[in-house]
Write a protein that binds this DNA or RNA. Structure first.
Lengths: 229, 229
DNA sequence: ACCTGAACACCGTTCAAGT
DNA sequence: ACCTGAACACCGTTCAAGT
């Protein structure tokens, strides 16, 4: 089971770049953790072992894809007010990562490589240092904002690519649910949201925006405390 | 390769409960996504197929473990002020989930079953409705708080069980890092944190607390806006 | 240096057969 | 109803061998 077409010649000019591009495309299509090294080999029309030879194991290929995705990211205008900057920053993050399901999770876990993510992290830190955080807390806030953003995107990836939009907390899993008032409210409002397809259009986007706005507000409140002292 | 000891009799009184208990123990030891159905069978000293017969496939067993973990959770005193209640709520959540790596991720994704998670979600919703959120926004805030909490715990699981405490954003992955001022600050402060083992004792705990405090503050700020109108 | 092809040690899951 | 044992269709990864 080598190449698709029976030709035994094949794959002369195979390059690391071509491998990573193909992997990136597979990631677009099915998600970073969903394709196998054998899928990738088949798409490239080569034996699995040439991937090992030119790039490395699955993990190495996956990280290379992540790097490529991170490199696509464009930093917001540096002269924005810090809260607007961060909202823009995290929205852009979502826009890029959402196209490559599974990459956000890896970034949350391993961080970007310094080459691809360096300047961005640098800018992010500066915005916080500039408004008055001292170094340790700026670092902590920076971490928390980015990690939470990535995790939320990663969560969206997962939800999108398993079932449909079943809810997370309203409980679709078990069999017999006793009635609880608060719980019912939760379920109702989700069902509202699920009724019109046009209202549901960007359920995840709405959730994401709400989450990051709360987070940024929370950091802002902390900033006021610091300034008050 | 059936039982460990050569006896071919074995495993008379195997019950679903025993299977799930063993799976829970394996989850404690190595994480929900790290044990295999074959591991579980070996621990129980039975063939893999009896697990299918008594409980179901891996996914079913895993969800049963999650349910059992969620059931361990104790709800905070209902008469706490809402912010204290939520801080307590999420801290408790971490304390339980952290002992069973991988369960938090599943809860974020699928939600708890209504039986095991119902009363808790109910209480959580009530705290938000009581302080003045109308239903839709209370549901959204509730979701966001719980999901973010679970995701952060899940992230901690992952970080703990891969490398050591390498940092996420300070960039330990690539090879040649150019210098950036903000970036360097980030790295320094992490390294500070890594110096004394006693200071590092609860790096993740500190990060978690900071994250949920910011989140709760953010929700509080939103509440002030609503009340102001 | 690069590609071939087979093989290894795993997975989850299924199924015919026993009792 | 429950357990046995083998098998299937996958994985990632390695390696001796070719050119």
């Amino acid at each position: 089971m080598p190449p698709r077409h029976a030709s035994p010649n094949v794959a002369k000019g195979i390059t690391p770049d071509a491998i990573i591009s193909a992997a990136a495309q597979l990631t677009r299509d099915k998600g970073l953790e969903k394709w196998t090294i054998r899928d990738l080999a088949q798409v490239l029309d080569v034996y699995s072992t040439v991937i090992y030879h030119h790039v490395g194991d699955r993990n190495t290929v996956a990280n290379a894809v992540v790097d490529r995705v991170v490199a696509q990211y464009r930093i917001p205008e540096p002269d924005l007010p810090w809260r607007a900057w961060w909202r823009q920053f995290l929205s852009n993050l979502r826009e890029v990562f959402i196209q490559y399901p599974g990459t956000a999770r890896r970034v949350a876990l391993n961080g970007p490589s310094p080459e691809s993510g360096g300047p961005t992290i640098d800018r992010a830190m500066r915005t916080l240092l500039r408004v008055g955080f001292e170094q340790d807390e700026a670092a902590m806030a920076c971490r928390v904002l980015i990690i939470q953003g990535c995790l939320f995107i990663s969560h969206e990836d997962d939800r999108r690519h398993t079932s449909g939009v079943t809810d997370d907390l309203s409980g679709t899993r078990g069999t017999q649910a006793p009635h609880f008032a608060g719980r019912e409210s939760l379920q109702e409002s989700v069902q509202d949201r699920l009724k019109g397809p046009e209202k549901n259009r960007d359920y995840f986007g709405e959730l994401f925006d709400y989450a990051i706005d709360r987070m940024i507000d929370g950091v802002d409140k902390r900033l006021e405390e610091i300034r008050g002292v």
